[in-house]
Every structure is written in C-alpha cells, then in structure tokens.
C-alpha cells in the first residue's frame, strides 16, 4: 500500500500538468472577453487597448508557460516569504493578476476561503451526519414508514434545484415572517461579520441556517441513497447470516460488519464531494449572497477573467486528484482484500 501511494503521488505530477494544459485550452478557447461586461458606450479601440494591456493577445504558449511559472514558482515563493519573513527576491515580479480586479488571484482566493469553508463545509458535514443514519436505518428497516418518508424527502430534495428551494426559504423566513420575530432569518449573508462573543456567534448561526440547510438537503439526498442501496446489498449476504448465527449482537453485526462493507460507494461519493466544498456552491452562494469561491468562479467566467478561472479550476483539480487517491487508499483499509500492487 505504501509503495502504491508513493507511485500514485509521483504519477499525479504529470497528470496534473496535463490537466492544467487541457483546462487552459478550454478556458482560452471558450468565447469570453475581459471587456465583455463593460458598457457598450466604451468603443472597440479602447477595448482592444485594455485587452492589450492585460496581455490577452500574447501567444497561447507564452501565456500558458507564464501561468505555470507564476503558479508553481512565484506564488509559493511569495507564500513562503509571508510565512517566514525571508526575502526571496520576489519584489517587483509580476504576480498572477486577475483581469477584473487587477489584484493577485491568490489573495482573492484566500479572502474567499473562510466564508466558503464555513458555509459549504458546514453544509457538507451536516449533510453527511444526517445522511448516514438515515441511510442505515432506511436499509435496516426497509419499507418501514421511516424508510418511505426518508426516500420521499430525499428524492424531492434532490429534484428541487437550489435556485428554487433557496428562494422559497427566503420568502418563508425573511419575507413572510416579520423581521422582529425570533424565527426571522437574514436573506443576505454578511461576509464582514466577525464572531467575537456569544451574541455575534448567534447572528453567525442565524445567517448560516438557510444556506447550510439548502445545500445539506442536496448532499443528504445523494449520500443517504447510496448508503441505503449499499447497506441493502450487504444485509442479504451470507456473512451476515453467519454472524447472526454465531450469536453476535444485532448492533455489532450491522454497525461493524455490514456498515464497514457498505462504505465503499459512500466513501467514493464523499471523496468526490469534498473538493466541491472548495469549489463552492455556485447557485446557493448566489442566492444567499455568500460571495465565496463559487461566486468568484462564476463572475470570473462571465467576465472572461482567464487567470482567475484557470487558477481556481486547477486548485480544484489538485483536490480532486488527491481525494480520489485518498478514496483508493481507504478502499484498501475498508476491505483488506483490495490490493493495488
């Protein structure tokens, strides 16, 4: 397993380089223009000058190599400088600059990270914590009332997109409920809010309820369905009968043997989902104005901001590759028969 991990880690480097090239080509090929969002009153010669100043018209290869150098060399150096206070000679070097804000892309990402991790991360955690018990109980008591209700809610939850469910909860909790009521919730997420004491924590909690719940609904639906299906598969296996026959208690049989063997698809889904925490939830962030990484990405795409799109997508790619590797390692731990060597 150890040699497998090392080999895979080494292999990720060429994989990621290739992915970065493909992402770059797609982003550059797609019809986008950093001056596309400007008012029509700005004439085309001026637009051309702006593009020239941004370096949009340089040859593709030059732009790609420049991005590689900035992302893999300059930005880590600057990060190191900030961390240690050493002078590594980055002064005056052109950093990875966003077309829209003319500021370093990495700073933008760092700025957005907290709210995305808080909101989307919490939603994921809540989603998993609700989904696993629902999935397990639903499978164990198949076709019980609990199972039927769980199925119904999770299916509705998955087929109602957040652009609708988000607006629905806003109308219910921010518009219909009067704003002086205890149950009123803010419809606009305040990203400048800082938690310093109990009162401010309560406000933070209130403003997180709606976005977290809307996101968690989707996540719960997905994970609980896979858990249930996988548990059902295993509950009818011979080894369960054997365990019961040996006189093992029901809870040990289910929680230890069945659950462990059912976790492979669940681990896969969760491993695919964790990078998306970083990717943010584009629609939910828009609906509640959380303005995290998802909103940064969508604005950058609409604004033809190639450096931002490229960098964000690439970091996302790194996480995908890493978490899929972690999933593969976990398979081996869950089921020792699985071998990669």
């Amino acid at each position: 397993m150890f040699t497998f991990t090392i080999r895979r880690l080494i292999l990720t480097v060429p994989t990621l380089l290739f992915i970065s090239l493909v992402i770059f080509l797609i982003v550059k090929l797609s019809p986008s223009d950093p001056t596309g969002n400007l008012p029509l009153t700005i004439p085309s010669e001026v637009r051309e000058q702006i593009r020239e100043a941004l370096g949009v018209n340089k040859p593709l290869l030059v732009q790609y190599l420049l991005w590689l150098k900035q992302f893999f060399w300059l930005e880590p150096l600057i990060y190191l400088e900030n961390l240690t206070g050493w002078d590594l000679g980055t002064e005056g070097k052109v950093r990875l600059i966003s077309y829209q804000t003319r500021s370093p892309v990495m700073d933008l990402i760092m700025q957005r990270m907290p709210q995305t991790l808080t909101v989307v991360g919490t939603a994921y955690l809540v989603g998993i914590l609700i989904a696993l018990p629902i999935g397990i109980i639903s499978a164990y008591k198949q076709y019980s009332v609990f199972d039927q209700a769980g199925t119904f809610i999770s299916m509705i939850g998955f087929s109602v997109p957040p652009f609708f469910s988000g607006v629905l909860v806003i109308v219910l909790f921010s518009v219909i409920i009067p704003s002086d009521s205890f149950f009123w919730l803010p419809s606009i997420y305040d990203t400048t809010h800082e938690v310093v004491d109990w009162e401010s924590f309560k406000y933070q909690f209130r403003q997180m309820i709606m976005p977290v719940m809307v996101l968690a609904l989707q996540i719960t639906a997905q994970i609980s369905r896979f858990t249930r299906a996988s548990m059902l598969d295993n509950l009818n296996q011979d080894y369960v009968r054997t365990a019961r026959a040996k006189g093992m208690s029901e809870s040990v049989t289910v929680m230890k043997h069945v659950l462990r063997n059912s976790m492979i698809p669940v681990v896969t889904v969760i491993a695919l989902g964790i990078p998306s925490i970083f990717g943010g939830a584009i629609i939910t962030e828009q609906v509640f104005k959380v303005n995290g990484l998802g909103q940064l990405l969508i604005i950058a795409i609409q604004g033809g901001d190639v450096p931002t799109v490229q960098t964000l997508t690439f970091i996302f790619a790194i996480l995908i590759v890493l978490f899929n590797l972690i999933a593969d390692i976990l398979y081996g731990l869950l089921d020792p028969r699985i071998r990669y060597d």
Binding site: V94, I97, T101, R102, S103, D190, T191, N291, Q295, L296
Partner: peptide
C-alpha cells in the same frame, strides 16, 4: 504598472464624502 497597484486601486484617496475602510473585491 497600473495593474500591480492593487492597494491603490482598492483604496483610492479621494475628496468625496466617504473613504474606504475595507474593500473585498466582488463582494463588499
């Protein structure tokens, strides 16, 4: 050099009624 001046671009000194305390681009 215009592009590298993000501090200046985010917090211009002005004569207007307000001045910037914190600028979070594309947010608040």
């Amino acid at each position: 050099a215009a592009s590298s001046c993000s501090t200046e671009n985010f917090n211009p000194v002005g004569t207007g009624p307000f001045k910037v305390v914190e600028f979070k681009p594309n947010d608040v």
